[in-house]
Design a protein around this nucleic acid. Structure first.
Length: 302
DNA sequence: ACCTACCTGGCC
DNA sequence: GGCCAGGTAGGT
């Protein structure tokens, strides 16, 4: 399942593959995956645009597009045509035209030569000016694509308000710890709540709790200062390591070229219910918290 | 703050 | 043949 590290991996690879490329054709084979604007306007919105940059907000992939035909027009083309521009230099304002992709559970973005056979369940195909195609495939169709001005997409709820991004340079451990809040809900609920903390899903929420030594069932308002601090630090450490490993491929996640990540082998608790804890050897407990399968060590996590 | 629908491949 | 996986939206 694509969570922050998988999305970050895809975003980095997309940046290399797409920046500077023009979208010369757009085909939607399964209109229901296009969240906005209604097909076929989606196709005309992206057609003829050039990709200026690729970044991420939580699990949302944002490809910044120039308006069609605006390349080289003074005052419209921006001073960052090289593609080697650092991420921070990108306009993160709501005025930019963006192609938005959320991968949901089984969504996949691929970049392939036009003649390369398509993966099953390929719903959207964008032809690029280098003879390759950006393809969106998704067996379970929980994923969505959209295009438009970011501010309008926000107003329409296509891109929701997201909480702090644990890897954003703008947020330190204190801000992340505060974002957990003081509710009586279990800490796992807060970790999964994208409007508090953006980017964690079921896999990394459990891993973060394990590394922090906190039970996923612990209520937020009962967290000690030190537990909050450890959770904040664990988020950064777990997510960064997973990104280094190019994400976790449990069942479906693959990168742009269909290559799996390698972090699944390093997961401490996810998918390991009943197996011995890497810390103490006691069998890991598998339960259900806020409707999600949850695994933790009853000794190492309090 | 909770519940259910959405979806399909994989597994018992 | 039926159930389960889970991110998000939308409803109560």
């Amino acid at each position: 399942m694509p969570e922050l590290p998988e999305v970050e991996t895809v975003v980095g690879d997309l940046r290399t593959a797409l920046v500077g490329r023009r979208i010369v054709a757009a085909a939607v084979h399964r209109p229901v995956v296009v969240r906005h604007p209604p097909w076929p306007t989606f196709a005309t919105t992206v057609m003829g645009t050039t990709v200026r940059g690729v970044d991420r907000q939580g699990k949302f992939v944002l490809c910044e597009l120039t308006a069609a035909g605006s390349e080289g027009v003074p005052g419209v083309a921006r001073q960052r045509s090289s593609g080697a521009v650092p991420e921070e230099a990108l306009d993160d304002g709501d005025g930019r035209l963006v192609l938005v992709v959320h991968l949901g559970m089984t969504g996949h973005l691929g970049v392939w030569p036009r003649e390369h056979p398509r993966l099953p369940h390929t719903h959207v195909v964008l032809d690029l000016d280098d003879g390759r195609q950006l393809r969106f495939a998704d067996a379970r169709r929980f994923g969505r694509v959209a295009a438009g001005v970011l501010g309008e997409l926000r107003e329409r709820g296509v891109v929701p308000r997201l909480g702090v991004d644990p890897l954003s340079p703008g947020f330190g451990a204190a801000a992340i710890a505060a974002a957990l809040g003081n509710t009586r809900r279990p800490v796992k609920a807060a970790l999964l709540d994208q409007s508090r903390i953006a980017g964690l899903g079921n896999i990394y929420a459990d891993e973060v709790c394990h590394v922090a030594g906190v039970r996923p069932t612990r209520r937020c308002h009962r967290l000690t200062r030190s537990q909050r601090q450890r959770l904040a630090e664990a988020m950064v450490a777990v997510l960064r390591t997973a990104i280094t490993d190019r994400g976790s491929s449990i069942d479906d996640y693959r990168d742009l070229w269909n290559v799996p990540g390698r972090h699944q082998e390093k997961l401490c608790v996810y998918g390991r219910g009943g197996q011995p804890c890497v810390g103490c050897g006691l069998p890991l407990k598998q339960t259900r918290v806020v409707g999600r399968t949850t695994v933790y060590c009853p000794r190492c996590q309090r």
